[in-house]
Amino acid sequence: MNQTAAFGEATLRATDRLDVTGGVRWYRFDEDRTQFFDGIFGNDDNGKTLVSNPGTTKANGVAPRVIASFKASDALTLNAQVAKGFRLGGINDPLNVPLCTQTDLATFSGRNSWQDEKAWNYEVGAKSRLADGKVSLNVSAYTMDITDLQLTVTAGSCSSRLVFNVPKAVSRGAEVELDAVPNEHVALSLSGTFNDSKLRSTLTSTNAQGAVAVVSGISSGNRLPSVPRVQGAAALTLRRPMLASQGFVTGSVQHVGSRYTQIDDLAAGFGAVDLNSFGKNTIGGPLTQSTFRFDPLLPAYTLVNLRAGLTRPAWDLAVYVNNVGDTRALLALDRERGTRARVGYLTNQARTVGVSLGFRR
């Protein structure tokens, strides 16, 4: 692997209130890799021969950035930014051909590598100080146009995981942050994010009978995976002198909206597992049902944490309760062999009560 890059940036003070910053990054990336596979699904002679899978990927380009910052007053600064970003391509694992149906083999074969992902980001925002500097308020809004978006999919019956490039996607949103310290005893922080991220392209495949189907939920208008539409957080800290120390109580709340784990969670029919897909080799029979159903949309969740203690120059002592409500948050969908072998949810830590003691020199 060889990677070369150069970056430069300069700031022009156009007026006493306006600064303009321009920068550019040039990059070049070359990778040659040979992957070795073995086992009964490794496309070899029943696991008797070690199989090598060579691959190569190359990328080069220029990523510019321009930032304008206008100081409207001592308490208000306005910002605007245009920037191009990128994410390097890579080499896919080979398909587990012995597992593939003919339809899936035709759909997912020939994708030995994936290309660079590129994005143009346009952002405006404001940073302000209120109440004689005791309150700060920051807001921003952005839109991002993405080309060759890299998405991980499970290759159907082939079980392999591949990275696809989707020609177009868009992400738009807004963020707000507020921090307030009205006096030495109280500190408050609030933040919130809204994001609307969608595909703008559809990938299809055609089977031997001429039927056209959408590949792995990659359809224009579908939400991007792992991106909640709404997120928010809040924290409040109260401090008071106590027992020759500084006593404190902190409470925090985190809210995360609904989201999907992978793009193929949005595929038609996903969420239903045929328990007889392995035929006579099904483990655990006789079965009481032929289909297992689940919801791939991860629901929103809210977590609350509390912490209280004493602080001195040389040490601090605190008791804490994390996940006060013992909320069971579904963080991601866990699957193996495209849900044929295993499907379940990854969850958060249950309610946890503890004591912490720290020393400083």
Rank of each mutant, 00 (worst) to 15 (best):
P94S: 03
L105I: 09
Y260Q: 09
L266Y: 03
P286K: 08
L162A: 02
V215I: 09
L275S: 05
Q150T: 01
G23T: 02
G271L: 12
A235S: 15
D148H: 06
S197L: 10
T147Y: 05
R361S: 14
D295P: 07
S252W: 03
S136W: 07
L95V: 06
G271H: 03
A63E: 04
S109I: 00
T206Q: 12
P225W: 03
T288W: 00
G279E: 06
L346R: 14
P182V: 05
A314G: 06
T193D: 13
A131F: 14
A174Q: 10
L297K: 12
T77A: 14
T261D: 11
V353W: 10
K280F: 11
T154I: 07
N281F: 15
T347E: 11
I263C: 03
S191H: 08
Q231G: 15
M144N: 12
W26V: 13
D334E: 14
P94N: 05
N2D: 15
G358C: 02
D274V: 08
G251N: 10
N183D: 15
D38E: 08
I91K: 04
A208W: 06
T34I: 07
L162F: 03
V186G: 03
T282N: 10
A10E: 11
T11K: 08
I218D: 03
T15C: 01
A75L: 06
S73M: 07
G156R: 05
E117I: 08
P296C: 11
H185R: 14
Q349C: 06
G173V: 13
D196K: 15
D45H: 06
G247D: 13
T288P: 00
L236W: 08
G344F: 01
N323M: 05
Q289C: 09
A119P: 05
F194L: 15
R337Q: 13
L199K: 10
T204H: 11
Y301N: 12
I146V: 09
V135I: 14
A308E: 07
L137E: 05
N121E: 01
G173M: 09
S220I: 02
E336C: 09
P296M: 08
T302E: 03
G284E: 07
L88K: 00
T250L: 06
R240Q: 13
P225D: 02
A180N: 04
K58H: 12
N322Q: 13
T261P: 03
A314W: 10
G110T: 09
T154V: 09
D44Q: 08
R351E: 01
N207T: 04
Y142N: 07
T339Q: 01
T302L: 01
A267P: 07
T193W: 06
V355L: 15
G354I: 08
V139E: 10
K118C: 06
R340E: 12
D316P: 02
Q3S: 11
V66G: 11
